[in-house]
Amino acid sequence: MLDLTVIILTYNEEIHIRRCLENVCPIAKKVIVVDSPSTDRTVEICREFDNVEVVVHKYPGNQAEQFNWALDNLKIETEWILRLDADEYLMPELIDELKEKLPKMDKDVAALSLSRARAFAGKILHHGIVNGIWITRIFRKGKARYEKRLMDEHLSVDGEIVRMEHQFVDDNRMTIGQFTIKHEGYASREAALLLDAEYHLTDTSSLPKDHGEEVERKRAQKERYAKMPLFWRAFAYFVYRYIIKLGFLDGKEGFLWDFLQGWWYRTLVDAKIFECKKACGNDKEAIKKYILEKWGIMIDD
């Protein structure tokens, strides 16, 4: 068993949590589920596992704050911490790699970056933009915490980050209807982020910059995307994913993923931005007020 604590943030994850726990409980000394709280059977399922601790904590508004609260308030006695979502699991090859490498990791290494595979409608995708995405998910206790961000938050790490060779999988079992409902909420946060990138609504000068080249590259891409014409950019993004990056080779599942998450979702984001700009023009204070009143999102100065 690895000297590892797994932290999982949950809210109504009964369709995913058992698979996740069955995947990590055999390899981790402890698993802590921080529930928001759920109204389904999530907590009941968690309590079936001996090395799982369930802590109920009211959701503060974003994943970063919830995870940092866990780091600050929970009893974590292991050297390493893994952040995992309920709809994710580690591939067998990654588990074997961690068993081999984690116990003898160099002391200068503060965190490990994992490659994420994407599954949709029960199929792991291999084309489009699903490959080559690296996310820092494992870190030494006291060496990392999340930046405060509406979504797409990343760990700020104090020390060297090493890449693992094998992957974890993001495999959501929601129906298409549930997927679209959930992404309506995501769209408001994504719209707020793009408006922030375009109008600099928040002061980011004090935020840490040590996320690594991969994260900074993605942030730069988002800023460029924010400057492109509304609606056209959503269509161009779909063409890039589905045609240029060969998403069509993943069959019907690949089409649904690239269309729903690439074109439909991005068009919904643009529609929200369009409504906001139509109501507020380029008035930054009016935009922040609109985001708070219409989407329930606080944009901090």
Score class of each variant (00 low, 15 high):
255 F>N: 04
256 L>P: 06
278 K>G: 06
256 L>I: 08
249 L>N: 06
188 S>G: 15
227 K>E: 09
200 H>D: 15
276 C>F: 11
277 K>C: 06
243 I>C: 09
221 Q>M: 01
209 K>W: 08
231 F>W: 15
275 E>Y: 15
240 Y>W: 10
219 R>G: 14
211 H>E: 10
275 E>H: 15
257 W>S: 03
234 A>T: 05
205 S>R: 02
222 K>W: 05
258 D>A: 05
219 R>A: 14
232 W>N: 00
217 R>N: 04
231 F>Y: 10
228 M>G: 04
196 D>N: 08
263 W>N: 14
244 I>G: 04
273 I>S: 12
211 H>A: 04
236 A>W: 01
255 F>Q: 06
206 S>R: 09
212 G>T: 07
206 S>I: 15
219 R>S: 09
219 R>N: 00
234 A>D: 04
197 A>E: 07
193 L>G: 09
203 D>A: 04
248 F>V: 09
216 E>G: 12
262 G>L: 10
219 R>H: 08
273 I>H: 02
268 L>F: 09
200 H>C: 08
217 R>H: 03
257 W>Q: 04
200 H>E: 14
203 D>G: 02
247 G>W: 11
206 S>T: 07
268 L>K: 12
214 E>W: 12
271 A>Q: 12
271 A>Y: 12
202 T>L: 02
265 Y>E: 09
241 R>Q: 01
255 F>W: 01
275 E>V: 12
232 W>Q: 07
188 S>K: 00
209 K>R: 12
216 E>A: 01
279 A>S: 14
227 K>W: 13
201 L>A: 05
264 W>C: 07
222 K>F: 10
191 A>N: 14
261 Q>R: 08
242 Y>E: 08
240 Y>G: 00
231 F>L: 08
235 F>S: 05
248 F>R: 06
255 F>P: 01
243 I>Y: 05
228 M>Q: 15
203 D>N: 06
275 E>L: 03
232 W>K: 11
229 P>H: 07
242 Y>I: 01
221 Q>I: 07
248 F>Q: 01
184 E>T: 13
268 L>Q: 02
278 K>V: 12
221 Q>H: 11
267 T>L: 01
211 H>R: 06
249 L>Y: 03
271 A>F: 06
208 P>W: 00
212 G>M: 10
279 A>G: 05
194 L>G: 12
242 Y>T: 10
238 F>A: 11
186 Y>G: 03
272 K>D: 01
209 K>P: 15
242 Y>F: 09
185 G>F: 12
251 G>F: 09
242 Y>W: 15
191 A>L: 02
257 W>G: 03
220 A>T: 12
255 F>M: 02
187 A>R: 05
242 Y>H: 07
216 E>Q: 01
246 L>K: 06
249 L>P: 00
235 F>T: 09
253 E>G: 13
236 A>H: 06
244 I>A: 09
258 D>V: 07
200 H>M: 00
272 K>T: 11
249 L>G: 03
238 F>M: 04
202 T>V: 10
208 P>A: 04
270 D>Q: 00
234 A>K: 04
202 T>G: 09
186 Y>C: 00
190 E>A: 11
232 W>R: 13
250 D>E: 03
251 G>K: 13
249 L>A: 01
204 T>D: 05
258 D>M: 10
242 Y>S: 07
218 K>F: 03
209 K>H: 13
250 D>Y: 05
232 W>S: 11
209 K>I: 07
